[in-house]
Design a binder for these strands. Sequence first.
DNA 1: TAAAGTAGGGACGATAAAGTAACTGCCTGA
DNA 2: TCAGGCAGTTACTTTATCGTCCCTACTTTA
Lengths: 116, 116
Amino acid sequence: MPKTPPQCPMDSILRLLMGPWTTYIIWVLSDQGPQRFGALKRAVPGISTRMLTERLRMLQGAGVIWREQAETIPPAVTYGLTPRGNDLRSVLDALGNIAERWKAEGAFEDNAFRVG
Amino acid sequence: MPKTPPQCPMDSILRLLMGPWTTYIIWVLSDQGPQRFGALKRAVPGISTRMLTERLRMLQGAGVIWREQAETIPPAVTYGLTPRGNDLRSVLDALGNIAERWKAEGAFEDNAFRVG
DNA sequence: TAAAGTAGGGACGATAAAGTAACTGCCTGA
DNA sequence: TCAGGCAGTTACTTTATCGTCCCTACTTTA
């Protein structure tokens, strides 16, 4: 990560999406609709509570997802995509299409995408 | 970075774009056209030769950029976007539009995008 | 009585990623 | 003759990130 990133708004978005799990979380929320914390954790296999919490806070801070806490006991917290989150979703869709096309072209077969 | 990422082709693309500087390099190549190594380094302020080399190798391995070496002395190496690189460019453009809209909405002003 | 689920918080440590610096060989210009 | 540009490579060091583990307080179920 560059210390002093170019002062470009896109950089902020990339910084947001770049983190691990982030796009996966957005994907789940857009595919399965709003989810509770536990359901989300189960839907993103392998993620730790720590990471999930952090990512959700980050996405929420960016206005990409909303958080709704029901004051029951135990509290039930639900997360969902905001309109801003849907903006991202369309881009992710486009990226997904490219990924599929590349895959059809055999892009992911050899050891491309590996540098070492 | 998840150790066992979901076996999704999009994950490979994200892994490619995610690295620091990567999108910036693609952006420069698409905006300024094919560039020599040194020019690229100057166009991406702050990047080290090490990083630039690594990113270029990675992008080249993914078929996103081409590399042309003239066997002169000293050798002149030029990099440019392949059609696959242009695929990405359109997505980055879309992302850039979103970024500008968000910026107009004041998304990047407060301490959003910060988790700590 | 104990386990499990709910939604996390906090500390610690390993590991991978990024930065820094020094080096290559060859040539050109001052 | 000495610096500087070309296009990197290699080694070393540091930083940050992520994972793991344990904790909360309350309730329901077995």
